[in-house]
């Protein structure tokens, strides 16, 4: 599904290499986790995949179901089913959350040649999904993420994901800033979306999210590379011993 090969990325404005050759394949139905110390390039990877400005790909490729992601505009990547839950969701004053979501859903449908969703159908679906994420009517009406608490912002990301039904979901530290209850809600939201034809790339700093969203594969990223790949036990190893041991072992 998602195939990343030898991906090297530097900053556009600076001579700074951030990703130094990343190889990663996520198969449909699987949950891959990426863990790694701060500054190792996890967010950069997620931004480059979703098409944010400011980065320059110097080598390698990234495809989704065979389509070259790196050649596409961000909106095109979204339309073919890529979704990034932001580490820092953006506040947009003046744009209602509901308007935002409906615009997004219909823009994607249009790009895929599907009919737009009617206002009534949309309302019905969003109410239902919002309810399971404990997002109230007020949060739907308010401007996108404005005045939302950290947890509300993250739940809002998951709501967007649920509405857009992407086939490849990247979650960038969706657990950061969440208390245990909020994390459970978010994890339930993610688990509800798990299916045989959907892939997940869960970026996290801590093991605890992975207690709730069980990964099939765990990667460790350090200094712009994936330095180790294993099963769920790798996450536990990080939890117990920190990154130092793994990094030392890799370096050796």
């Amino acid at each position: 599904m998602l195939e990343i090969k030898g991906l090297k990325v530097k900053l556009e404005d600076e001579d700074k290499q951030i990703l130094k050759g990343v190889d990663l394949t996520v198969e449909p139905g699987k949950v891959h986790a990426i863990m790694g110390p701060n500054g190792s390039g996890k967010s950069t990877l997620s931004y480059v995949l979703s098409g944010r400005d400011g980065y320059e790909v110097t080598a390698g490729s990234a495809t989704l179901d065979g389509e070259d992601l790196l050649e596409m505009e961000p909106e095109e990547r979204a339309a073919i089913g890529l979704f990034l839950a932001f580490q820092y969701p953006v506040e947009i004053p003046g744009v209602g959350n509901m308007t935002f979501l409906r615009t997004a859903v219909n823009a994607q449908r249009k790009a895929r040649g599907q009919e737009e969703m009617s206002a009534t159908d949309f309302l019905k679906v969003i109410r239902e999904k919002a309810k399971t994420l404990k997002i109230d009517a007020d949060m739907l009406k308010r401007p996108v993420n404005v005045g939302f608490s950290g947890g509300e912002k993250k739940r809002n990301e998951i709501l967007q994901m649920a509405m857009l039904e992407p086939k490849m979901c990247i979650l960038d530290e969706t657990d950061s800033g969440l208390d245990v209850d909020a994390m459970k809600l978010v994890a339930e939201g993610v688990n509800a979306l798990r299916s045989a034809d959907r892939g997940f790339l869960v970026i996290t700093h801590y093991q605890r999210l992975l207690d709730h969203i069980k990964p099939d594969v765990v990667h460790i990223m350090a200094d712009g590379r994936i330095v180790k790949t294993g099963g769920p036990e790798l996450a536990l190893e990080v939890e117990n011993n920190g990154y130092a041991d793994i990094l030392a072992e890799v370096a050796a």
Binding site: R52, P74, E75, V90, A107
Partner: peptide, 8 residues
């Protein structure tokens, strides 16, 4: 970018 990443 946020809006575009959602397909707008």
């Amino acid at each position: 970018f946020y809006l575009r990443s959602r397909g707008v």
